[in-house]
Design a protein around this nucleic acid. Structure first.
Lengths: 131, 131
DNA sequence: CGGGATCCTAGATGATACTG
DNA sequence: CAGTATCATCTAGGATCCCG
């Protein structure tokens, strides 16, 4: 197997370098503990700050605020302010965030496989889940 | 929009609760800074410890060791020891890990959309990438 | 209601050196 | 080569209170 530190580089490795960079970009944008969960929540419709806080179990206002800012900065979420009659702020997915549906679908079906293939043979206790 | 704290629950919300749990499970298994990168590296063929350390840029032996143990514990990676003539250890993806290909494919194509749709309009500087 | 400001801790991660 | 051990760091995240 070729190595990066000699002159003989096989195609796979250059390809992998590109993939690695892509993965870094993706993880910076939708990685972390809350981003995908928030996006998932918003696929069920626009939500307000406190709605998100209720739906996404376990998130603190501080974390929610920070995550939403980052998602907005990165173009995944739009912040819509309605000032009449009271202050309401709605968070809404952008087009590009909606395209994460494919990712979410794959993750979900992978998880189903995973539970069937692995967990049943060797109970990994997810029931202690704190969320 | 209904809320979780009253008796009127709409279908979406129960569905969302399930999705949220799924997402938690997924993130526990393949979330974090290194897991997907390691899996990606191994899709290019089995690799030894130090090969992985070279390929997955920036990972320390400590982190690599820990991540590999977790991946093995969770049934995503097999550890193959060859003792002749010198000690060699190969890490190999399991069947269930190979099924993450769909996820990786979706992530990659989403990233391409993302860069086209967002980055070109508003340069988010990924060139400072430390990895 | 939609957050911001503060304080704080646990766990994740890095750097480096070392061992069988 | 395949890791471990140790130490230091860093920071995401929680708890809590506050404010317009």
């Amino acid at each position: 197997m070729g190595r990066l530190d000699n002159n003989l580089k096989i195609g796979n490795e250059k390809h992998f370098a590109t993939e690695l960079i892509t993965m870094n970009e993706v993880l910076k944008t939708i990685g972390g503990k809350w981003k995908l969960k928030l996006i998932l929540a918003l696929t069920h419709g626009d939500k307000r700050f406190n709605e998100l806080k209720t739906f996404v179990i376990g998130i603190s206002p501080r974390a929610l605020s920070k995550e939403l800012k980052e998602l907005e900065r990165d173009g995944l979420v739009k912040r819509l302010v309605y000032d009449e009659p009271v202050l309401l702020v709605n968070y809404q997915l952008t087009e590009i965030a909606w395209k994460l549906n494919g990712v979410i679908r794959e993750l979900t079906s992978w998880c189903a496989w995973y539970k069937e293939a692995f967990l049943e043979s060797q109970p990994n206790d997810w029931s202690h889940e704190v969320m």
